[in-house]
Design a binder for these strands. Structure first.
Length: 538
DNA sequence: CGACTTTGACCCGCGC
DNA sequence: GCGCGGGTCAAAGTCG
């Protein structure tokens, strides 16, 4: 646990890199085999760490490097472990220098081997860069295609409604209802987006974020949409507040507005916490509290105040059955950089939301409401991650309250071939899975980029299987959350979340571990597509 | 004084 | 149409 915490802390501090790095290669398991299980380190992290010139990690890993010394020679001979081998360089070099018995020939061979591995590493990294670029281009193209399709559908429906509706006021309302998405789908915007995609030197994730904003919410940072920032309190209604009628026309009508990217998903996380709150690193302001039916504990409503107009909200409530369980709900996408402490949670839950949304694409017509498990036929325990499309929102529940033994909980049957984590999951999910793989020390899950045509169907199964079948996912998620919770001393920092007068369980959560500006901040993550993280009330 | 919490009122969707 | 419940608003109060 301490190790996981340390790694996650490191992940936070190295957030910028991690978010720009694709998921670990499938041969990670092979690469990790060069050290004993206890010495395993995510190899790609090490490589990038080396290249980034950050030496502090060296000292922290000095002991592990020493542990690897004895094995360095034999390990070096494995050409398939190039990435990881570089992490042993210091130990290897030290071993070579410390042992005068090595003859020159052996030294030369080892150095040659080292150089070869360096070269191979460079080659692999360039390949990785290329793949990342291609991936970004494909994502952009896919999104643009989806947007155009949605735009066409919208215009069709708009035309239909204009002809069928006799009431002028109703028609006007319809037009208003469609405003957010129509504005986002404007041709001018399309052109601009095209330019963004093709010309912008931003990272893939940044492109994705911009695209997501165009799709799901009026782009908050768009000069033509400043009203959304100024009108921040209303943003939730404009992008589909539960009580908002604006997106309701999709109900019972065409499925165009129910297109997955426009649907609102929830990610529900149940976490056991004696503390009054879960510190997720964000800054929240309480704007309401209600007594929910069937629960003696009030439900508190919070709004993200880290940026003006940030549409993210969360609900916090204790479980009626077990008051040590905190059920917290996040909704919406941050429109601002997140501190590292918040990034882990945001990324994880966004990934879960993305999974859910992707999965709900093809299953929206299936009767899932009464079924707590989205895929009841799965042969895996689904107690830790449950997908549900129950009204009004599809919800994914991550139950972190159960004390799972990762060894025992490995799927009784091997995951099906589809239990992969497709990259098109908005990128982040794959990254997070990569991170989780690191922290879970799992054999690498194959990351398969599916073709667009087979995306959704496979996605549903893949994601569900990946989550439901792999308790380590939520175990690592729990580790991440416990890092946030445990690593955050109960203080009322600059976030201003003073709970002294909070006589309820409304925890607010706000302790921020702010780093200097830009350090470890994920530029893209706040705009994750439909990242609605819900600590659900079930 | 600004930021935050509290809390009653209000809005809206939904079911009957 | 009405009532219920979830979600939000906004004025008043609190705190540092």
């Amino acid at each position: 646990m301490d190790r996981q915490r340390r790694e996650l802390t490191f992940l936070h501090s190295r957030g910028g890199f991690l978010r720009q790095s694709p998921a670990p290669p499938p041969d990670q398991a092979i690469a990790e085999s060069s050290c004993s299980a206890g010495d395993r380190k995510p190899p790609i992290r090490e490589v990038d760490f080396f290249s980034s010139g950050n030496r502090s990690k060296l000292s922290s890993d000095e002991e592990e490097s020493k542990n690897c010394k004895g094995r360095s020679t034999s390990t070096l001979s494995d050409p398939g472990t190039g990435l990881n081998l570089l992490s042993l360089n210091s130990g290897t070099t030290a071993a070579l220098e410390d042992d005068p018995s090595n003859n020159d020939t052996e030294m030369r061979m080892l150095r040659l081997e080292l150089e070869r591995l360096h070269e191979e590493n460079r080659r692999l990294r360039s390949m990785l860069d290329q793949i990342t670029k291609n991936y970004g281009h494909l994502q952009a193209q896919l999104l643009m295609a989806m947007q155009k399709q949605a735009h066409l559908n919208q215009r069709e429906q708009q035309r239909d409604e204009m002809t069928t509706m006799s009431s002028p006021t109703k028609s006007a309302q319809q037009l208003m209802d469609l405003r957010p998405t129509c504005a986002a789908m404007d041709n001018a915007n399309d052109e601009e987006k095209t330019r963004e995609v093709s010309d912008s030197p931003t990272t893939t994730m940044e492109v994705m974020s911009k695209e997501s904003d165009h799709i799901h919410t009026p782009p908050l940072n768009h000069p033509n949409n400043n009203h959304n920032i100024e009108d921040g309190d209303r943003t939730s209604q404009s992008w589909g507040s539960p009580k908002s009628p604006r997106l309701e026309p999709s109900k019972g009508g065409d499925e165009q507005l129910a297109d997955p990217p426009f649907r609102k998903a929830r990610v529900s996380v149940r976490a056991r916490s004696e503390a009054p709150s879960i510190s997720d690193g964000c800054q929240w302001r309480k704007y309401g509290q209600k007594m929910a039916k069937g629960n003696p504990c009030p439900r508190a409503y919070y709004r993200c105040t880290m940026a003006v107009g940030c549409p993210v909200r969360k609900q916090v409530q204790r479980c009626a059955d077990d008051k040590t369980i905190l059920i917290t709900t996040y909704e919406g996408n941050h429109n601002h950089p997140l501190p590292p402490a918040a990034t882990a949670m945001a990324n994880t839950t966004s990934a879960a939301a993305a999974m859910l949304l992707s999965g709900s694409t093809t299953s929206k017509d299936t009767p899932t409401s009464a079924n707590p498990g989205y895929f009841p036929s799965l042969p895996y325990p689904s107690t830790m991650a449950t997908l549900s499309a129950s009204a009004p929102f599809p919800t994914i529940t991550l139950d972190l309250t159960q004390n799972h033994n990762p060894m025992q909980l490995f799927p009784r049957t091997p995951p099906p071939a589809s239990a992969t984590f497709p990259l098109p999951l908005h990128g982040y999910a794959a990254q997070i899975m990569g991170q989780l793989q690191h922290s879970m020390k799992l054999p690498a899950m194959p990351l398969v980029q599916l073709g667009v045509g087979q995306r959704h169907a496979s996605l549903v199964e893949s994601v569900s299987a990946a989550i439901a079948s792999d308790p380590n996912f939520t175990t690592a998620l729990a580790a991440a959350i416990s890092t946030v919770m445990g690593g955050a001393p109960p203080r009322n920092g600059p976030d201003g979340n003073s709970n002294a007068n909070n006589n309820n369980n409304n925890n607010n959560s706000g302790n921020n571990h702010f780093l200097p500006a830009g350090v470890g901040v994920l530029p893209g993550s706040p705009q994750l597509p439909q990242s609605c993280t819900t600590f659900s009330t079930n």
